[in-house]
């Protein structure tokens, strides 16, 4: 089981969103993109990122491909699949629903 981290279950959503904007990224680039676009507030831990990537790959939301870098080392690039796009839409709307509900609760107090 992945350890709970600051992202609290939203890691899948973030990874899918990043990949929908910029296809063909490797693990480190995804991690950096999450940090950059959140202004260094959100950080994906290495220990959670890769199991999550592999899980989403098995679920068929993303697919992976090996490329050889200039250094001769191979890297694994990820991109979104059609199923992944659907999943992203679903996760996004779920996230919206949850945050607006949480906001409502905060307002009523």
């Amino acid at each position: 089981m992945p350890k709970p981290d600051s992202l609290q279950g939203s890691l899948d959503l973030l990874v899918l969103k990043i990949l929908s904007r910029r296809p063909r990224l490797h693990g480190y680039a995804i991690m950096s993109a999450i940090a950059d676009s959140s202004g260094d507030v959100l950080r994906a831990e290495e220990g959670s990122l890769y199991p999550a990537l592999h899980r989403m790959e098995e679920a068929g939301w993303i697919r992976a491909e090996w490329i050889t870098k200039d250094s001769g080392r191979r890297a694994r690039l990820y991109e979104l699949t059609a199923a992944g796009k659907k999943q992203l839409a679903a996760e996004e709307s779920r996230w919206q629903a949850v945050t607006s509900a949480v906001n409502r609760v905060l307002r009523t107090v």
Binding site: H26, Y28, A29, Y50, K69, R73, A75, R76
Partner: peptide, 9 residues
């Protein structure tokens, strides 16, 4: 290998 390439990056 994937993890190694991550560390290298």
């Amino acid at each position: 290998e994937e993890l190694e390439s991550h560390i290298e990056a």
